[in-house]
């Protein structure tokens, strides 16, 4: 019985401190997304300007 309950929760932990440890990944991830999207926006504005219909 105890084994089957243990098995149900296998692969799971409870470590609240990991939330704080992951905050840097949250910051880096959002920063990288904004950088990439920023580059795409600039590229799009540029191609819009160069190839816009006169």
């Amino acid at each position: 019985m105890l084994d089957s309950i243990k098995n149900m929760f296998s692969g799971m932990n409870f470590e609240p401190v990991r939330f704080v440890q992951m905050l840097d990944k949250m910051g880096i991830g959002m920063l990288v997304i904004f950088i990439i999207i920023g580059v795409i926006i600039l590229s799009t504005l540029l191609i819009n300007k160069i190839f816009s219909k006169k």
Binding site: G11, N13, F14, E15, R18, M22, L23, M26, G29
Partner: peptide, 8 residues
């Protein structure tokens, strides 16, 4: 990701 890392 931060929330899930508490449990997984």
């Amino acid at each position: 990701l931060s929330m899930a890392s508490i449990f997984f």
